[in-house]
């Protein structure tokens, strides 16, 4: 089901639009999603803007996606290790599944996620494409 309300996505514009994450002030580990506590035991984080460059750590192809993405199938989804260290899961576009490998260099791009139906808001965010 599409989310009719645009509010939840709007609250995440910082990380979805700008690829903004968190850096532990003690061990410098970086995270895309907010963590209450770093495995090193520290509770304090600073914000970090990721460069958008990274390498694929794992990937797969989706043939039967959720309603929001059904007109995009088949599409690739990957776990990506950003150069700053954080790991992120994202769609990888403008490529074929056969083109991808573990270690393929990718870069972040600003793309359309989905629309909340014909009358709803269009949701945007960060996806990745193979580096070219």
């Amino acid at each position: 089901m599409f989310r009719e309300s645009p509010i939840i996505r709007w609250r995440n514009y910082s990380d979805r639009y700008k690829l903004r994450g968190y850096k532990c002030t003690k061990c410098s580990a970086t995270y895309f999603e907010y963590k209450g506590m770093c495995p090193c035991g520290n509770l304090d984080f600073t914000e970090i803007d990721f460069s958008g460059r990274g390498k694929i750590a794992a990937f797969t192809q989706i043939h039967g996606g959720p309603e929001a993405f059904e007109n995009k199938t088949p599409y690739c989804v990957a776990v990506i290790d950003l150069v700053e260290g954080a790991r992120i899961e994202a769609q990888v576009m403008d490529c074929k599944y056969e083109d991808l490998k573990i270690g393929t260099e990718v870069e972040a791009v600003f793309r359309k996620f989905y629309s909340s139906g014909e009358k709803g808001v269009i949701h945007y965010g960060t996806k990745f494409v193979p580096k070219f």
Binding site: R111, K112, I122, Y124
Partner: peptide, 16 residues
Amino acid sequence: PGKDEDTATISVHAAR
């Protein structure tokens, strides 16, 4: 355009 590209995404890419 790609299936997830529109005027906004093209604009952001060029502007970056």
